[in-house]
């Protein structure tokens, strides 16, 4: 007997699929916003004149980038629980994602900052801009504009990685799929649907970031080039 794919029994579960997809999106949005903040702070620390600050930021980046996300989640989630610190799964999941993507963002933003030519800063200094103004307008903004494509593709990767949070029972899209397949026994069909939903989320996110880039960086749009 050959197996017949049968999606009909899954029709009733569309609210769960939808809720899962929305949770994934929610995770992603939070982690993007906070991860960007960490990325900027981390990049500044990485380039700071204070030795220990540079070291701490460096260790953070290397540790996160050279260990699996799943281990990071387990360490955080079960570790904190063993200390008696219980937090909502939602918070734990987003926290793990922020720590993870923050490290990647740090490296990306740093590369952007390093690509700002020193003469730009000298020119700004000679115009009498304050240090804060220089950092914000002459260094950070052009740096972010330049690395925007790398940053957003990192955030898209993170959306895909959020599926791993299902392993600590987060109820995002993969978590929802795990639940649905365990009651319907239609595993293959369930994961095919979820795969498709992730694909749509990826496209949605890419389109969203592209649109946001058009609004945030009108200069890039005008030139039509990567700066």
């Amino acid at each position: 007997m050959t197996y017949q794919l049968d999606f009909t029994s899954l029709g009733a579960y569309w609210p769960q699929f939808l809720a899962g997809a929305l949770t994934t999106l929610q995770f992603t949005l939070y982690a993007t916003a906070l991860g960007l903040v960490i990325g900027i702070v981390g990049a500044i620390a990485r380039g700071s004149h204070v030795g220990w600050l540079r070291l701490v930021a460096g260790i953070y980046v290397e540790v996160v980038r050279n260990t699996p996300f799943l281990i990071q989640i387990f360490f955080l989630f079960f570790g904190l629980a063993s200390l008696g610190l219980r937090m909502p799964i939602f918070v734990a999941a987003v926290l793990a994602m922020v720590i993870n993507v923050g490290a990647y963002s740090t490296e990306i933003v740093r590369a952007g900052i390093e690509s700002v030519h020193p003469s730009q800063i000298e020119a700004a200094e000679s115009l009498g801009l304050s240090r804060f103004q220089i950092y914000r307008d002459i260094i950070l903004k052009p740096a972010l504009e330049r690395v925007y494509p790398s940053l957003t593709s990192q955030f898209t990767l993170m959306m895909l990685m959020s599926s791993v949070t299902s392993q600590v029972s987060a109820e995002e899209l993969t978590g929802a799929a795990n639940n649905i397949q365990s009651v319907t026994f239609r595993s293959m069909e369930t994961y095919l649907i979820v795969g498709l939903l992730y694909l749509l989320l990826t496209l949605l996110l890419k389109a969203g970031f592209w649109g946001l880039g058009q609004v945030l960086f009108p200069r890039r749009r005008r030139l039509g080039t990567v700066l």
Partner: peptide
């Protein structure tokens, strides 16, 4: 565009 975890499940159940 699909998480590795989902690819893994699809292959795992697909082989089954």
């Amino acid at each position: 565009g699909v998480p590795l975890l989902i690819i893994l499940f699809i292959v795992y159940f697909g082989l089954g």
